[in-house]
């Protein structure tokens, strides 16, 4: 079955990211495909490349990146929700005259239309929200 996840909780603030990552492992272990994880609302903070959690806590941002590297899962971030929360890739940072960027590949800033396409295109879209 082809799955996609919608993550709307900020990492380390709510259970949403932890649960979504564990659900990802479970569904992949059963031979399903995880096409994409879409980050919206406070979920966009999962794409913060500067996240530096203590060493005895799971590194959630790195966990998403590993998901992409191992399984080809796309990591899409709603651009409107991201920009107003200070999450900008290099292109947006330069467009807005910012001295640094906070989002980098494999996370990609994209529009909400992608979420709609995704939801209608997969077998299951599962939401993780606080």
């Amino acid at each position: 079955m082809r799955y996609a996840l919608l993550v709307q909780g900020a990492p380390y603030s709510s259970q949403a990211s932890h649960s979504a990552l564990r659900f990802s492992e479970a569904l992949l272990a059963r031979g399903n495909r995880l096409v994409c994880v879409f980050f919206y609302h406070d979920g966009v903070y999962n794409a913060a490349r500067l996240a530096a959690p203590p060493q005895d806590e799971p590194h959630l941002v790195d966990a998403w990146v590993r998901l992409n590297e191992k399984h080809g899962t796309q990591l899409q971030v709603c651009i409107a929700a991201a920009l107003r929360r200070g999450l900008l890739d290099e292109r947006e940072a330069s467009r807005h005259g910012k001295s640094g960027h906070s989002v980098e590949p494999p996370f990609e800033l994209t529009g909400l239309g992608q979420l709609i396409d995704l939801g209608l295109g997969v077998d299951r879209l599962v939401t993780f929200a606080p």
Binding site: G113, L115, I116, D117
Partner: peptide, 14 residues
Amino acid sequence: EGLDAALVAAAFGQ
């Protein structure tokens, strides 16, 4: 943000 998602879905012809 929920209403935004609704507007975008409608703008995409849904």
